[in-house]
Design a binder for these strands. Sequence first.
DNA 1: ATCGAATCAATACAGTTGTATCGGAAAGGT
DNA 2: ACCTTTCCGATACAACTGTATTGATTCGAT
Lengths: 186, 186
Amino acid sequence: MPRSVDLHARRREIADAMLRLVETRGLAAATVRETAVAAGVSLGAVQRCFATREEMLLFALTRINERFTARVLTTVTPGAPPRDAARTLITEMLPLSEPGRADARVALAFLGVAAEDPQVADALAVAHRNARAFFIRHLAEFGGTPVDATRLLALVDGLRAPLLLGHLSPADAQEAIDAHLHSLFA
Amino acid sequence: MPRSVDLHARRREIADAMLRLVETRGLAAATVRETAVAAGVSLGAVQRCFATREEMLLFALTRINERFTARVLTTVTPGAPPRDAARTLITEMLPLSEPGRADARVALAFLGVAAEDPQVADALAVAHRNARAFFIRHLAEFGGTPVDATRLLALVDGLRAPLLLGHLSPADAQEAIDAHLHSLFA
DNA sequence: ATCGAATCAATACAGTTGTATCGGAAAGGT
DNA sequence: ACCTTTCCGATACAACTGTATTGATTCGAT
C-alpha cells in the first residue's frame, strides 16, 4: 500500500469545497473542475474520489444534511420549557444567522433539482422525514398531535425562502413563529 | 414593413415552450436550442425574440406567475363562506392537481436559482408580495391579522415541496390545512 | 535496493453551451 | 417590376462541460 491517502477524509474535504461553491455561486458553478480548485486538489484527485459528478453531488448532500442537523441540535437544551425550546430550535432552522443562510442557500439549490433527480429527491426525503419524526416526537411530549408537527414544520419550511431572498423581514418571520407557538401551546 | 411577424405572440410561444421543458426536464434542460425545437422555430428566431437566455428566462418567469395567479383566482367564488373559499383557494395553490404540480416544479426550479440570480429573486419578490397582500386583504374581512396571513402563506409554501416530491401525502397536507383553518376561524 | 501497487497531474476528447455573423428569402411600398 | 427593409435559417466560434486515458511519481513491503 504505497502513497497512503485517507480517501474518506479527502472525500469530505472535496464535498465541503463543493458546498462552499454552491453557497456562494450556485449549483451550476460547482463543476468538477471548480470544485477541484476550491478543494486545492487536482482534477484527477477528485476523479478518484468520485466516479461521477452526480456521486459527488449526492455525497455533498448527505454532508450538508449532517451539518444542518448537528448545528440545529446544539441548540437543544434539556430541561428548558418546551415552548422556549421550540422557539430556539426553530430560530436556528431559519436563515437568520450566517451559517443558517448558507445552509438555506444550499437547501434551495438542491430542492430545485430534486424535482428532476430522483436520487436527490430521495436524500431530501430522508432528511424531511427525520425532521418530521423529530417534531412529532417532541410535540407529543406535551400533547401535540402529528398534525401539529406537520403544520409547524411546513411553517418553518415556508418561511425559509422568503427570508433568504429578503421578501420577508426577520421580524415578520419571528412574529409569525411566535403567534404560531402561542396558538400551539394554548 | 415586410415579413410581418407578431413578435410579442412569438415571445409568448417561445416562453411557454421553455416552461414546458422546465416542467418536464428541469431548468438546465431548457437551453436556447432545446427551447427553439420545443417551440418549433429556429435558433435564429429565438435569438431575435430574446437577446440572451437570461432575458428569455425572466420573461418565462413572468409568464408562469401570470398563469399561476390566473388559475388560482378562477377558484374564487364570490359569496362563498370565507373558510370554504380559503380552503378551495389553498387547495388550488398546492401541487395536487396536475396543473398545480407542473407549476410547482417550475416554481421550485426558479427558487433554486433565485439565491444566485438577483433578477429572478426580484421577480419572485413581486409574486410573493402580491400573494401576501392578497392573503392580508382577504383575511382582514373577517378579523384576520397580517400575521395570520403570513402564517397561512408560509404554511402553503412549506407544504409545496414535500407534496411535490412525495415526502408528504395529499391527505396529510389536507389535514394540516384543515387544522390550520380551523384554528384560524375559531 | 528493488519491485509493484497506489496515486495523481496532465492531457485528450467528444459533446454541448450561449452568442455572433452572414447570406438569402420574403413582402410591403413605390 | 424593383427596391428596401425585415426576418430567419444555417453556420461558425470560443468556452466549457464531464469523463477517459496515460505516464510519471511516490512509497510501503520484500
